[in-house]
Design a protein around this nucleic acid. Sequence first.
DNA 1: CTGTTAGCGCCTTCAT
DNA 2: ATGAAGGCGCTAACAG
Lengths: 316, 316
Amino acid sequence: VSPTTVSHVFSGHRPVSPGTRQHVEDVARRLGYRPSAVARSLRSRRTDTILIVVPDITNSFYPELVRGLQDSVAPSGYYAMVGNTDAEEANERALLELAMSRRVDGIVFHGFRTGPADLAAVAEAGIAVVNLGEGAAGAAIDSVRFDDRLAAAEATGFLLAKYGRSIAMIDGDEVAPVGRDRRLGFEGACRDGRVRRPRVEVTEFTRAGGRRGMERLLGRGKRPRAVLCANDMIALGAIDVLKARGLRIPDDVAVVGHDDVDAATIVSPPLTTTRTDARQLGALAGEMLVTRMTGEYRGKARHQVAAHQLVVRDSA
Amino acid sequence: VSPTTVSHVFSGHRPVSPGTRQHVEDVARRLGYRPSAVARSLRSRRTDTILIVVPDITNSFYPELVRGLQDSVAPSGYYAMVGNTDAEEANERALLELAMSRRVDGIVFHGFRTGPADLAAVAEAGIAVVNLGEGAAGAAIDSVRFDDRLAAAEATGFLLAKYGRSIAMIDGDEVAPVGRDRRLGFEGACRDGRVRRPRVEVTEFTRAGGRRGMERLLGRGKRPRAVLCANDMIALGAIDVLKARGLRIPDDVAVVGHDDVDAATIVSPPLTTTRTDARQLGALAGEMLVTRMTGEYRGKARHQVAAHQLVVRDSA
DNA sequence: CTGTTAGCGCCTTCAT
DNA sequence: ATGAAGGCGCTAACAG
């Protein structure tokens, strides 16, 4: 029996008589033979593999993203490699290089030091690309993202309506896209709400950062009635300080976070925060990627925005 | 210039004159040429790829594990695919099949429905295997694991020494390996401490399960002075109930968890718990795998145990 | 329904 | 220091 026949037994690309089929399957089982995906890839120029690049799989946001992506591409037969960059440029570039030399069919990329321009080279190499990172919106590469600016604006609007104009923000980083966008949203909403010169303290995206920020806020000037935190860890730190000073939440100071991490339901009082669905983001990215990889869509770049929602609990 | 020369420019496997090298590199850059890892793999029979199989990357334990593994194999030039099984047998088998057809160089496997026997087939296919799951210890496949039994015994000993013999356990599941082992450790330590018939409530590995377990414990019989919980989520639930009833922790009831999740430092009082270092587990797995893949080690199966430690905070 | 042939892109002899 | 040739395992095109 010829290689061709064996090939067709496994691929089903053309009819094989039941007898031969049975025979081939028996022998294959006995020999432990199974088709080599490597050789198949060389021939077909497809690897059925995608690469997902994130800063650090260990950041609680990313496992959800990865899982959403995997679940959305699996039905089409794709498997995922995962790469971490620690947000370092060299690593980001190395992983783009890897995508090209490995001939992956697609890549979902969340870069911080690298953007659409670098992804263009990958796309030109014939690899489907979805950008989640820096410069996603409006570029020539498909993208999915959250509208952090809008989310922050909405949360700010909520605080303004409920607690009035005595409002402040603790931001984590003015350079990081999330920090920048959330701050822009905050400031925009303040402007709309006719709040003049709202206070913003910039620290770090950590609980310790939140403590520092809140201490500064309480240290000088009038105590704000409501505080928007750029993420939940910051909010946790802010709450630490308020409690330590015997201030009641939300009666003395209301606090809102962003991200809805697990801990948000564990602190007391439970944290009011904005939930972004990382899994859905991954799923959307996967869908876009698949339509590109299968050639079902060939048009110009699409830009999607994944949903967010304000989860009102007890801290505001 | 011949293909051979180009090959050697990229591989460095034999000297190439500076002039030719430069020329080849220039042309390659201009054409966007880069060697195909696929073709290389077909020829070399190595893919420089490993597969890590976990129940669900979304469970907080696994991202750390994956990262530890990745960081430990990366210096040797390996990249990782990640597969989720949701602890279902069909998925576990499918991923073993994938490992073989993709010709990955190694696999790190955390299976629940599938064990050393199934991994043997993979090993016979010439793939390096490290088992983290069911039946790891003592089998014919390299393995790394935590000694959950010992950890639970140590935590129990701590409680016994500090609070005496009025002790109970809330377990999550008597079938799951973790649940079983932790319970065995608890019971063993009780025996050693001459505690007759310690109470054990079996619920689920969740906060809700912890609530149920603690309610049952308080519902009938004498209130225990100390409670060992099979994981931190259970401990969180147990604490919810104690607080709701106005009981003080640890003055009325001491609580110990297991895993040291993030939330353990956020609850009040901060949770005393056993920390297992998932990242280290992954790193150990990676090291074993690499020594197999490179052929540096060819002997019989090795079984390692990763470290754990009791983190004493305020709940006990 | 089955077989023959050629080539995917690389690397490793073997020659020059 | 460079080339030519063959084959890794598969599949599509072309017979029969």
